[in-house]
Design a binder for these strands. Sequence first.
RNA 1: GGCGCGUUCGUCUAGCGGUUAGGACGUCACCCUUUCAAGGUGAAGGCCACCGGUUCGAAUCCGGUACGCGCUACCA
Length: 475
Amino acid sequence: MSVRVRYAPSPTGHPHLGNIRTALFNFLFARHAGGEFVVRIEDTDRARLVEKSEDAILESLRWLGLTWDEGPDKGGPFAPYVQSERLESYQKAAQELVKKGFAYLCFCTQDRLAEMRKVQEAKHEPPRYDRQCLMLSSDDIRNSMDTNEPHVIRLKVPQEGKTVFEDAVRGHVEFENALLDDQVLLKSDGFPTYHLAVVVDDHAMNITHVIRAEEWISSTPKHLLLYQFFGWTPPTYAHVPMIMDAHKAKLSKRRGAKAMLEYRDAGYLPEVVVNYLSTLGWMHPNEEKLLTLDELAAAFTLEGIKKSPAVFDQRKMDWMNGLAIRQLTDEKLLIALDPFLDSGWDRHVVKKLIPLAKERMTTLKDFSVLCDFFFTNNIQKNESIMNQKIAVDKAQTFIRRYTSILASLTQWTHEELEQTTRKFAADHQLKPADFFMLLRIAFSGKTITPPLFESMVILGKDIVIQRLSEANFRC
RNA sequence: GGCGCGUUCGUCUAGCGGUUAGGACGUCACCCUUUCAAGGUGAAGGCCACCGGUUCGAAUCCGGUACGCGCUACCA
C-alpha cells in the first residue's frame, strides 16, 4: 500500500515552528516514499476556534513549499478535509461502539466531574471518571434521553491487559489498560473529541503513518483501543520529539513562541526555516549546505529521527539565514527583498547595493537598516553619533575643506575618491580610518554602512557634497 | 501523585563494544581590514546525568537512581 500521511492541525491560532516542523516531517516522509501528503483541519473544539487560523496554517505551508496532495482547499478522494463537515461519520462511529458495548452514554454534569476530581485529588488518586453512568439501566438511559438530558459518549476501556505498540521512533511502548481513563469520544454538543475524530478519519482516509508530536504518546493506547473495537488496522505511529524554548518547555503560543509567518515577515527565507527545522530532532545531512526540499526528502527516514527533544536556537537560525542570503544570486535577492523595501526606492540603486549589503545581512529586513540613507536625505543628525577620534570643532573644519576638494574633482570613481581621501587624511595628519569614519557619519548618519567609497560612488557627487555641506558636528 | 518518554561540549548533533569522543552554531584569539560584516586560521568548551553490573575492553549492552519534559479536560 502506498504511503499516506497527514498533517492535522487545529485551527486554534497561528501555527508556530513546532507545529510546522511536524508538517515538514510528514511532507518529507511522503515525498521520500512517493506517497501522499494530506492536510486535514481538526476543528472539533468550538470554544477554541480562532478565526483565520486555517488561512495562516495553509499560508505557512505554502510559504515553505510544503505542497499537499489533498486538503480543505483543493479537495481529494476523501473530501471533505475539515472535521466539522464530517460530523455524521463520528456520530455513526460512536453509536456503533455503543451498540457493540465498547462505549457508553454518560449524563454526568461538568460540575459533578469537577467535584469528583477534587475528591480524587484530595485522596491522591489518579483523576479519572468513576464510571457512575456505566451502571445506568436501560430505563434510566431512556428516561434521560426522553428529557433531552445532555450527555456524552465515553470509551469503555478494558480493566485488564496492556496496550502495546511499536513506535517507529521510540520502539516498544506499553501501557496498562487499567490506568486509562474512559475517554469522552463524543461531546454533548455532538462534536467528537480529537481521539475519536483522528481514528475515524485516519482510517477513512487510508492514512498509513501517523507522524505527530511526542505529547501524543500517552493518548496512543486509547486510539489503538478504538482501532481494535472498530476492527480496523492501525497505522504505524512515529512520535517525533518536541521543540523546546530556551527554558526547555514545549514551544507554545502561550509561552511566547512566535508564529511561523512572523519569521517570514521578519525577513527569514523559507529554505532557511525548512533547513533549520530539519536540524531539530533529525540528522540533517549537511547543515552548511542548505538543501532543497527534494534533497531533504531523499535523505529523510523515520530512523533518522531523534528521541530526545531539541531546544530552538534563534542564533543558529540567524546564522543560517545570513548564509542563505549570501548564497542567493543578486537577482534572486532582489526579488526576495522586494516586500521589505519602500516602494519609492529606485530598484536600480537597490541592485547596485545588493552585492555590498549581502555580506552584512542576517535577515532581509537588514537591507533597509543598512542602506536607507541612499534613498532619503532625512538622515540621523551627525552630532548625536559623533565619534570620539576627531575633536568636534576640528571635524567641522576638515569636512568643509574636504568638501571643497571633492567639488573640484573631475572624476567620481572609487579610485579617484580613495586616492583623494587618503591624501587629504595624510595632509592633515589624520589616521585614514578615523577620517573615513568621520566622513561616513557625515553623509550617512550612521557608523555602520557598506564600504565607504562604493557608497559615495552610488550616492553620486551631488548628494555627497550636499550631505557633507549640511553635516553638523557641533552641538 | 500516577503513567509515559528522554538524558553526548552553552545549543543542535555524529557515534550504534576498542575513536586523541567528530562536526555545526555560539564564544574567545589572531589574520584580513575603512566601519560593520563576510572570509581565513586557531583555541577554549564534554569526567558521554549518576551508581552498579556484563565484558579483556563500554558513550555504546543490562539494571537501578536522579533529573528534565510530556500526558493526566466534554483542548488539541
